[in-house]
Design a protein around this nucleic acid. Structure first.
Lengths: 183, 183
DNA sequence: TAGCCTTTTCAGAAGATATTGAAAGGATCA
DNA sequence: TGATCCTTTCAATATCTTCTGAAAAGGCTA
């Protein structure tokens, strides 16, 4: 692919973005497709994606659909053209919000439910216990509570950041800085 | 393992924590070991970890070391005992800070460097270009700049949150809420 | 409806990652 | 020093994930 400097630069970024995605639990190829579309000046069709990344039709189809499920890319149709075209969300903040919202829904909320359930479980025969056994249960309970509190705090922070949005976050950061210096 | 409700609860949490870790690019077993140690009332030795999670000595050794590298657990020695014991960081906020710092170092900073390098690459023959080619390069440049700006903002937010710490973040959240309502 | 173009699906292959278990390496003690 | 106990290493293996490519399905047009 590398030919012009711009192609080399895009190619380099796409590879790195893919590698980074892999360490965050996103398949390398999916992250590469995302990067490719993010940098593309125009919406791309499946064949173009296949060619640029040297992947099979099946893989392209799967990864494009998955990205669509995440809400990170959009499917477009063009009049007089049977092909489908794909376009990535261009606003990085929007992208971040989308990813965080999905991850919260898929991963954070379930673990919060689990923790609540765990707490209920150990509360079952809590009052019957005495001495060391009781101490251990209380201890465990506290640890569950700590994680839960943390998750709730992160949710709050995320909500505030979403609300503030791209332009707002900078002012928010300033506010925090000021607040920290004053306290 | 499940016997007493507390064991069942711990076991459930450990499994879920492991699953969640897996979706965030941490191996399931490593996350399970971490959860096990986080909930343990006392430091545990390798054999106890092996037994509780039904994993091999090799796996236990590797995962414990990896957790130590991340700074999430500590290795302890006891007088008159040749075994090594492991203890997890108990403060959830500290834990979060450690994870974020490591991830930033390992994954965010490298991608920021890459983006800077990409920007330099496309700047090489930028002035020579005209018309559409030039427009495309400018466009691409802007996208790189957007991501970079985002990464920098996240760094700032992270630094502020670390500084604020456990107790501070709650007040900070309140401040932001107020600020957003007022603006 | 048939023909054409495109997308989706999925079983099998390939590739990546994690685990095992046994041998080697270290440390401590008598 | 030798015996003992514990940890680390690593090649082989198992497991999990992702990719491929061809067949099936979907859908538009004439």
């Amino acid at each position: 692919m590398p030919q012009e400097p711009i192609d080399a630069a895009k190619s380099l970024f796409i590879r790195r973005w893919g590698e980074m995605g892999a360490t965050w639990g996103i398949s390398r190829t999916m992250a590469e497709v995302h990067a490719l579309l993010y940098l593309a000046p125009e919406p791309m069709c499946t064949d173009e994606v296949m060619d640029q990344l040297a992947i099979s039709r099946g893989s392209a189809s799967m990864n494009l659909r998955e990205l669509e499920n995440w809400g990170l890319i959009q499917r477009l149709h063009r009049r007089g053209d049977r092909k489908e075209y794909f376009q990535a969300e261009q606003d990085v903040w929007q992208m971040f919000e989308t990813i965080m919202r999905e991850r919260r829904r898929r991963e954070v909320l379930p673990i919060m439910e689990t923790i609540e359930r765990c707490t209920d479980m150990i509360d079952q025969n809590h009052t019957k216990l005495r001495g060391d056994a009781r101490r251990q249960v209380d201890d465990c309970r506290q640890r569950f509570a700590d994680i839960l509190e943390f998750c709730e705090m992160m949710n709050t922070m995320f909500n505030l950041m979403s609300q503030a949005g791209r332009t707002g976050v900078r002012s928010v950061a300033k506010q925090i800085g000021k607040f920290l210096r004053e306290r």
